[in-house]
């Protein structure tokens, strides 16, 4: 009986989960490179660039993601910037997560001793070669655990898109629960989230292991 019911609602939960995965994937793929660029900008020699980016990071980290979602979808149309629900969600998530990733990468870049740049300079490596071959690999190793934390958070944060009416995993569970007056859908939703975070945790551990061959 219960198994039948579970089987019945599984397809709708799965399509909700697919939405969750999509938001997760695009946010991660775009926010990480953007975060690196912003973190370099936060260390820029040009003061106005630093100010603007600091303000952006402060704004994104200082206000709730939920508020940012609402603002992008319901607020921006007031000034004639209109997003589809899905695009609004992706846009807000990228804005928010880029700021967090930028702060993480800024810390990573700061941890590289000046001597590494100097030793690259006397070996006549260009700035770009130094970044690519020496600095970025070291920064990545430093930031992997923190990026991992944010990645897990992102999976769970993606449930906030219910507020702009997107059909993600949590919403799918919610609908089934109120329709059928049973808690089972929410239990299943919880299990699916756990599976997703477990997969992410596993992959992250593999990446950490990849960087454990040197210190």
């Amino acid at each position: 009986m219960m198994l039948n019911y579970a089987g019945e609602i599984l397809p709708s939960l799965m399509s909700g989960a697919w939405m969750t995965v999509q938001i997760f994937f695009w946010t991660l793929i775009i926010s990480i490179p953007l975060g690196i660029i912003v973190s370099l900008g936060l260390r820029s020699r040009v003061a106005p660039i630093r100010w603007v980016l600091k303000f952006y990071v402060w704004l994104m980290r200082g206000t709730p993601l939920l508020l940012q979602l609402i603002f992008v979808f319901y607020g921006l149309p007031v000034v004639h910037i209109i997003f589809e629900r899905y695009d609004a969600a992706i846009f807000a998530f990228i804005l928010n997560y880029t700021a967090y990733f930028a702060e993480i990468f800024r810390g990573g870049f700061q941890a590289i001793p000046e001597g590494q740049y100097e030793s690259a300079k006397v070996l006549r490596l260009t700035r770009w070669q130094t970044l690519r071959k020496i600095v970025i690999p070291q920064v990545v190793k430093i930031v992997v655990p923190s990026i991992g934390n944010e990645t897990i958070n992102l999976i769970k944060d993606s449930s906030l898109v219910y507020v702009i009416g997107l059909g993600d995993l949590l919403r799918a569970g919610n609908i089934a629960m109120s329709r059928d007056v049973t808690l089972l859908p929410l239990v299943m939703v919880g299990v699916i989230y756990l599976l997703m975070t477990a997969i992410a945790t596993y992959l992250l551990r593999r990446i950490e292991q990849h960087y454990s061959t040197w210190r």
């Binding site: 001597g115 590494q116 100097e118 030793s119 071959k133 020496i134 070291q138 190793k141 040197w214």
Partner: peptide
């Protein structure tokens, strides 16, 4: 060429 006091080898290589 320079040999630094703390060598500054590249730890990732």
């Amino acid at each position: 060429g320079v040999v630094f006091q703390d060598f500054q080898l590249f730890p990732n290589l």
